[in-house]
């Protein structure tokens, strides 16, 4: 029993169920794993996309609404800080101004538009979805699609490389009948023992 198991491990005796029979088996297992990986990546991307499109939950309290507007505005007297994050006095006054406008019934878009009218689109932390700034929105999507195409091409090449080729076309052997394989492997084992 132990010797049979050892022989099995060495590959000298083919198991009866033919698990190690064809080189195509490994390729199949590899393609299966690869397909699983691709499926998992697709599911994860889909989930990320859904979360990204849905965005954060809508703010409910006045404080949250102020925070939502302020976090999209650049603090005019800081280096790359949002009005929500800046400790400067002007940012504090901007938050107070946003709160007063929201309390008066203005919508977040209208409040933002007021600041854009005074400071220009520069005051927005996110670029507008038009003109040249559209590149900032479309470039990541383009890069993602290009990456997807590259990955698909790489997977295709990998799968093609792992399939067994006909004996006449290359160096790797065509699948052997089980009896021939047993003979060959016994001979190889004998050669290794020497």
């Amino acid at each position: 029993m132990s010797s049979a198991a050892g022989a099995g491990r060495d590959g000298a005796v083919p198991p009866e169920d033919g698990r190690r029979a064809a080189p195509g088996g490994a390729a199949l297992r590899r393609s299966g794993a690869l397909l699983g990986l691709v499926a998992a990546a697709l599911v994860a991307s889909g989930a990320l996309l859904a979360v990204g499109l849905r965005g954060p939950a809508a703010p409910t309290t006045l404080g949250q609404r102020v925070q939502a507007v302020a976090s999209g505005l650049r603090c005019p007297v800081c280096e790359d800080l949002s009005v929500a994050d800046s400790p400067s006095a002007l940012a504090g006054q901007m938050r107070a101004s946003i709160a007063a406008d929201l309390r008066r019934g203005m919508g977040p878009a209208e409040v933002r538009r007021q600041f854009v009218q005074a400071y220009g689109p520069w005051i927005l932390l996110t670029p507008p979805r038009r003109g040249l700034a559209l590149v900032a929105w479309l470039a990541p999507l383009g890069l993602f699609l290009a990456g997807l195409l590259l990955a698909a091409a790489a997977v295709r090449r990998w799968l093609r490389g792992s399939t067994p080729r006909p004996a006449s076309a290359g160096t790797s052997p065509a699948p052997l009948p089980a009896a021939d394989r047993a003979l060959l492997e016994r001979a190889l084992a004998a050669a290794e023992d020497e």
């Binding site: 080189p23 093609r160 490389g161 290359g170 160096t171 790797s172 052997p173």
Partner: peptide, 12 residues
């Protein structure tokens, strides 16, 4: 044999 498997082809 492993070497043969790892050495797939020149088809690509």
């Amino acid at each position: 044999r492993s070497a043969a498997e790892r050495h797939p082809s020149s088809l690509g």
